[in-house]
């Protein structure tokens, strides 16, 4: 009970912190970084749903992020469609492409799946890089418009954009929470543990794996569309494996297959990276080994580590309590 109330307190505090952040630190640069962190976290949640909960490590996630970004870019810049309609279509188109790729990719398992998706990611990158007519090639797409004002709310200012990202972020977190803490989430976890066992429990692994894959591409596409709308310029480098590996790092550091992992990992690394500006290009000198060390010593990342510590403390308490009770009983008896 104690932990539960604690959890509620922590979550409320975090939400309040998110709301007042622009007032405490009215620094445009930090606002920019925080907005980006919200966007990355959404993408990491997508990856975590698939790799963390369902056990399929997709290395095409950066590619799907880029598809989301390019769909909104092409729709607004080339076809001059409105922002909101494009923004709605971007994750849906990404999801549709994800569905088609997933149908084939999910026939493979483990190593083959990782290699297959790595190749899918590369193909997405190469297509974006080379298909100049559609994507602008290496020059990318410039001039993605701002979101149109909704009634009196305009999205001109960075603060407004921050709140927009924050609201979508909260929505995504809530949706993910419900998914992973429901029968759907339990079904994913059962598949991760053992597909043979899941099948023998009457679970259609094919359908549920596809569901997890499509959901993960949806969130990647959503994050990509938010990124494009926020930065307003996109180039093929956002489809490169670097993005996939960044997202992977956020997930592993925070804790693969844990609910809070994506938030913890993403914010931690984004904030540390900002404070190690001089390291920018070499940040992987630290995060690369960190990734490897964590996966060896704490495979479920920071959140998994803390959960384990809390659990053990609780267990010890219970044991010592039981021991005490027994001692008292024997004392009373003797």
């Amino acid at each position: 009970m104690n932990i539960l109330t604690n959890k509620k307190v922590i979550i409320s505090l975090l939400i309040v912190l998110g709301i007042v952040f622009p007032f405490i630190i009215p620094n445009l640069y930090y606002l920019h970084i925080m907005t980006l962190a919200f966007i990355w976290t959404i993408a990491v949640y997508g990856l975590n749903l698939l790799a963390g909960y369902t056990g399929y490590l997709s290395l095409a996630h950066g590619g799907f992020f880029a598809i989301g970004a390019y769909v909104i870019g092409i729709l607004t810049v080339k076809l001059e469609m409105g922002f909101w309609l494009s923004f709605l279509l971007a994750p849906l188109v990404t999801m549709f492409i994800g569905l088609i790729i997933g149908l084939f990719a999910l026939r493979t398992k483990e190593h083959f799946f990782a290699i297959y998706t790595l190749c899918v990611g590369y193909i997405i990158y190469l297509v974006i890089d080379k298909w100049e007519g559609l994507t602008g090639g290496v020059r990318g797409l410039i001039g993605i418009p701002l979101p149109e004002a909704i009634g009196p709310i305009s999205f001109q200012s960075p603060t407004a954009q921050y709140y927009l990202a924050f609201i979508i972020f909260l929505l995504v977190v809530a949706v993910i929470y419900r998914i992973v803490h429901s029968l759907t989430g339990r079904t994913f976890v059962a598949i991760r543990n053992s597909e043979d066992l899941a099948l023998s429990l009457g679970i259609s692994t094919k359908r549920n794996k596809l569901l997890a894959f499509v959901l993960s591409t949806f969130f990647a596409g959503l994050a990509g569309a938010m990124y494009a709308g926020f930065i307003r310029f996109i180039g093929p480098e956002i489809a490169y494996t670097t993005i996939t590996f960044d997202l992977l790092t956020y997930m592993i550091v925070g804790g693969i297959g844990t609910f809070a992992g994506p938030i913890v990992g993403t914010f931690l690394i984004v904030i540390i990276s900002q404070n190690l500006q001089f390291l920018q290009d070499y940040r992987m000198l630290i995060f690369g080994p960190l990734l490897t060390l964590l996966i060896i010593f704490s495979p479920r990342g920071i959140v998994g580590f803390i959960q384990m510590q809390l659990y053990q403390r609780k267990r010890k308490k219970q044991e010592s309590l039981a021991y005490k009770n027994r001692e008292e009983e024997t004392n009373a008896g003797g």
């Binding site: 992977l248 592993i252 690369g288």
Partner: peptide, 11 residues
């Protein structure tokens, strides 16, 4: 796989 990717990024 993740460990190998970590090494790759580091190197």
């Amino acid at each position: 796989k993740v460990a190998a990717i970590g090494i790759l990024l580091f190197l």
